[in-house]
């Protein structure tokens, strides 16, 4: 593998977004790019990430390879890169190590690091194609604020999407709270719009602890999309120029 990324910051943000959810995971490298799928220890949340091969220049791969990485180790090495550095990932066919090279734009500094790889036996879940009943896109900063605010009052949030809008509500020991967003279109700054596509009303309850964790991906994209259907996991997606980070969260269900 040899994959060169114009901005090291992209990989730094991706790893920052997922490192608190999963510790060890495989970066699966194939013709479509570098992909990752991993569940948290409790099997409540799952992250699925793709950095498309088009996002790298060049992207050279002789044969598919899985790079078993400890994300804490990778974070330490990525801290040694500036966001604007050019990052090159290199690995052999049956690698023991992953090599990371950081070059500044002026081309007068080259930093070379290696991290040890591990064998990770990871089960990949089959995620069914789902026609979601509701898809809500909103500013990622707004979603982050809502999750943090409501998490002060409660462990859980109810998300209700209807024609009127989307309502996030919670109640806890000290009281209760809710935030309702209505659809609106910001012509000048589309990334600040809230869009609600709905085929039927949805009401689901989720643990805020995980949602707050997902929001660490807000640096990747100014827009987040929530896809919901009754009684199925929530999909939270942050789209990047050439790839995505998706989180799935199992709902809380009444007995």
């Amino acid at each position: 593998l040899e994959a060169r990324l114009e901005q090291a910051g992209v990989l730094k943000k991706v790893v920052d977004a997922i490192k608190d959810l999963v510790q060890d995971c495989n970066f699966d490298c194939n013709d479509s790019g570098i992909a990752l799928q991993a569940m948290d220890n409790s099997h409540v949340a799952l992250v699925s990430m793709l950095l498309k091969s088009e996002g790298f220049s060049p992207y050279r791969l002789d044969r598919n390879v899985a790079l078993g990485v400890n994300l804490t180790s990778l974070t330490k090495v990525l801290r040694c890169a500036q966001n604007e550095d050019i990052l090159t990932l290199k690995a052999e066919d049956a690698p023991d190590t992953l090599s990371l090279v950081f070059e500044n734009a002026e081309n007068d500094r080259i930093s070379e690091y290696e991290i040890k790889l591990m064998d990770i036996d990871q089960e990949h879940l089959g995620i069914p194609e789902t026609e979601y009943a509701a898809a809500i896109s909103m500013p990622s900063a707004e979603f982050q604020r809502i999750c943090r605010d409501l998490n002060q009052l409660s462990e859980s949030v109810a998300i209700e999407a209807s024609k009127e809008g989307v309502k996030f509500s919670c109640s806890g020991d000290i009281g209760s709270g809710s935030v309702t967003l209505r659809q609106h279109n910001n012509v000048d700054r589309p990334e600040l719009s809230t869009k609600i596509e709905l085929t039927e009303p949805v009401a689901l309850t989720f643990s805020l602890k995980y949602l707050v964790n997902f929001c660490k991906a807000s640096a990747l994209s100014s827009v987040v999309t929530l896809s919901l259907s009754n009684e199925v996991p929530l999909l939270v997606e942050y789209a990047m120029g050439s790839g995505f980070v998706r989180f799935y969260l199992a709902p809380k269900i009444g007995e």
């Binding site: 569940m39 409790s42 099997h43 409540v44 949340a45 799952l46 089960e123 990949h124 879940l125 089959g126 995620i127 069914p128 859980s156 309850t205 643990s207 199925v232 996991p233 799935y248 199992a250 709902p251 809380k252 269900i253 009444g254 007995e255």
Partner: peptide, 14 residues
Amino acid sequence: VKSQTTLGRFFSLP
């Protein structure tokens, strides 16, 4: 009272 489900209930292992 609602209880937390896990993803295995919705997604299949290969």
